[in-house]
Computed example of a mutant assay.
Amino acid sequence: MISIEGLSKTFGGLHACDDLSLSIEPGSTTAIVGPNGAGKSTLVQLISGVMRADAGTIRLGATDVTRLAPAHRFSLGMVRSFQTARVFPGMSVLDSVRVGAYYGLFYASHPFSVGSTVRDAAASLLRLPAWRARYREAERHALDIIGLFGERLATRLDHYTYTLSYANRRRVEIARALASRPRLLMLDEPTAGMNPTETEELAALLRDIKAARPELTLIFIEHKMNVVRQMSQRVVVMDAGRIIADGTPEQALNDPKVIEAYLGGRGAAQT
C-alpha cells in the first residue's frame, strides 16, 4: 500500500499540496486529474522523491520513504516517468531501456547503498562473470519490453533517442520504466503529445501490461478523459493542492465540485 499522511508543499504562498492524505491499494490503477496548477505533478514529484515535502509522511508498505533519495526509492520499486519526456539523448533505444532493466534486476538482489553501487561499478569495469550474466539478462528483458511497443520502437533499436519523434521518446521513457520491474509505476501524462490513434494504442498497451501484472500498482496523471475512463479503477481529483473528489471514474468525474472546479460547469460527459 502507498500511504500518504498530511503531505504539504508550498511555493511562496501557493499550496501545491495542502495537508493531503491518501491511501492507494496495491495492484490498483488510480488516475490523478484536475485543472492546471491543481498540484498533480507536485504530488508525483513528492512520492518519487524528486521534491522534498515540507510536512507529512509517505510510506511504501511498512517503509517510511519520506526522506529517502529518488534513487533509493527506485531501488524499492518506485518508478516514474515525467511530464515531458526525459531520455538519454546520446544512447540508443536499446541501451536506454537496458539501463532500466539492468538496475531493476540489480536492486532485486542488492540493497541500496554506496557500497553496492561501487562494487557494481567495479564489476562492470572488470567484466566479472556475475556482471556479464546480469547484463545479458537485462538485454533480454529490455528486448521483451521494447517488443511490446511493436514497430514504434522495435525497428529503432540502434537509433539515438534524440533522433526520435516526441511520441517515441515518451514510449522509450515508459519502456525504460517498465523494464525496471516496478512495484509502483507513476506516469505523468503518458499520452501527452500523441494523436488519438497513438493515444488509444498506448492506453491499450498499458491495459494489457496491467492485466499481465495484476500486482503492479499504477498511478497516472492524465488530461484526456477517455483514457481516464478506460484505464482507471479509481479517480482522485485535485484542486488547489487538495483532493476534492475520490471514487470510481463515474462517481468522481460527475461530482458537482469537479464539474465546477475542473470542467468549468460543462459536465463530465462532454469531456
Rank of each mutant, 00 (worst) to 15 (best):
L148E: 07
P129W: 03
S116G: 12
T117W: 01
L125M: 11
A123D: 06
L125Q: 09
S124A: 13
R119F: 02
R132D: 10
V118E: 07
A121F: 13
V118H: 11
F149Y: 05
A130E: 15
D144A: 14
A122S: 12
S116Y: 03
H141F: 09
L128R: 01
R132Y: 03
W131V: 01
Y135D: 03
G147H: 11
T117A: 10
R134I: 02
A122E: 08
R119Q: 08
W131H: 06
L148K: 07
L125V: 07
E137G: 11
R134Q: 12
L148S: 05
A121V: 06
A121K: 08
I145Y: 02
D144L: 13
G115F: 04
L125T: 06
I146H: 01
G147Y: 12
R136T: 13
H141V: 02
H141P: 03
S116E: 07
V118N: 07
E137A: 11
W131A: 06
R140G: 12
E137Y: 15
H141Y: 14
Y135C: 03
E137V: 07
L148A: 05
R132Q: 14
E139D: 15
A142H: 03
L126I: 05
R134H: 09
E137K: 14
A138I: 05
A122D: 08
G150Y: 10
E137D: 15
E139A: 12
R127G: 07
D144Q: 15
R152T: 01
G115E: 10
S124T: 02
S124C: 06
D144S: 13
R132F: 02
I145V: 14
W131C: 05
T117I: 13
A142K: 00
A130P: 02
L125D: 09
T117R: 02
A138K: 01
R119I: 02
A121M: 14
A122W: 03
L148R: 09
E137F: 14
S124P: 00
G147P: 02
R119E: 03
R132T: 12
L125W: 06
A123V: 03
V118L: 14
A122R: 05
A138L: 10
G115K: 10
Y135H: 10
Y135G: 02
L126Q: 03
S124H: 02
A122H: 08
A122Y: 07
R136P: 01
R136Q: 14
I146E: 01
S116P: 02
A122M: 06
P129N: 13
P129D: 09
A121R: 11
L143C: 13
I146Y: 01
A133K: 07
D120E: 15
S124M: 02
S124I: 00
V118G: 04
L126Y: 04
D120M: 08
E139T: 09
L128E: 00
G150H: 12
E139N: 11
